[in-house]
Design a protein around this nucleic acid. Structure first.
Lengths: 153, 153
DNA sequence: TCCGTTGAGTTTCTTTTCTGAACTGACTTT
DNA sequence: AAAGTCAGTTCAGAAAAGAAACTCAACGGA
């Protein structure tokens, strides 16, 4: 299987991975969620090489995750911003951060904490069932052949 | 920055990415959650090349995400199973699948559907705040310098 | 006993991708 | 006029991935 074919796979993981399943891409997205928007800023904050950064930003734009918007004329300069599609990756990032906090933190020290503006508290992200609101456990989830969401089954 | 250094970064995203931030690794994990356990099965289902599969499985074992357990003697054969640490990646996988379902599905057709054993319903995964149980929006989350979870701030 | 098969990898060689460092181009500032 | 800023591009060498064949230990049958 080549990477070009991945997006064609009949699997949502494969399709998503074809967009974000790359080390640098995930770190670029982290920066996006931290409000980084400009080429130089990404480069400096990540230490990524310029050619790879240019490539990843372009791919994210093609995938509709980022948009390239001019922020000045003379010379025209662009910045990269998350689209709604990109913002929808927030749960993925939160899940990744949380796993890192729990399993990779050095002696319980978390690099960053999250605060929920809506309630004002420091919080952890929790994945719950849309139907019963209970936290999901891997063992409680079964997989069935696909269809349209909402189809009676 | 080299990949070896990534795990040392003071960032939970970087540390997590150093473990799972690889295209094949994420697909291997998808298979693990679908109960695939043996080398040949991974290879066949994913179409991954053998050297890369051997490498990824070994790295996941080193990272404590999978364990290599003998399932027969003479000849000794091993299978790979998710550890608790690996099971804890479930929210990451669910978030990835869900994004793919919403944004990469071809005309609304989802490759698989999920059912929650606890409540019996088909569901979508939702990321909520551990404190107020409201669904999280990217814009409602602010980031603060780290500390130990629970520290008063 | 020899023969073919299975499972889990290795080896080898080629192709692709990444890194590092320098270079370009359009402007602005001093 | 020289130097600086931002957003890239170019290019050579290094690292990683892909394809295909090979290894090894043991089993199952004829």
């Amino acid at each position: 299987m080549r990477w070009r074919e991945l997006g064609e796979e009949e699997c949502s993981v494969a399709r998503t991975v074809s967009v974000i399943g790359d080390r640098w891409t995930l770190l670029v997205l982290r920066e996006c969620f931290l409000r980084t928007r400009r080429f130089e800023a990404f480069q400096e904050r990540l230490g990524i090489t310029r050619p790879v950064l240019a490539d990843r930003l372009q791919k994210l734009v093609e995938a509709g995750v980022l948009e390239r918007i001019p922020y000045q004329e003379r010379p025209v300069r662009h910045e990269y911003r998350l689209t709604q599609r990109g913002l929808d990756l927030h749960p993925v990032m939160m899940a990744i951060v949380h796993w890192g906090d729990v399993h990779m933190a050095k002696d319980g020290h978390r690099p960053v904490l999250h605060r929920h503006r809506a309630c004002g508290h420091q919080f952890d992200p929790v994945m719950v069932c849309s139907e019963c609101a209970a936290p999901l456990q891997a063992r409680d989830v079964t997989v069935e052949p696909g269809g349209r969401r909402g189809d009676a089954r």
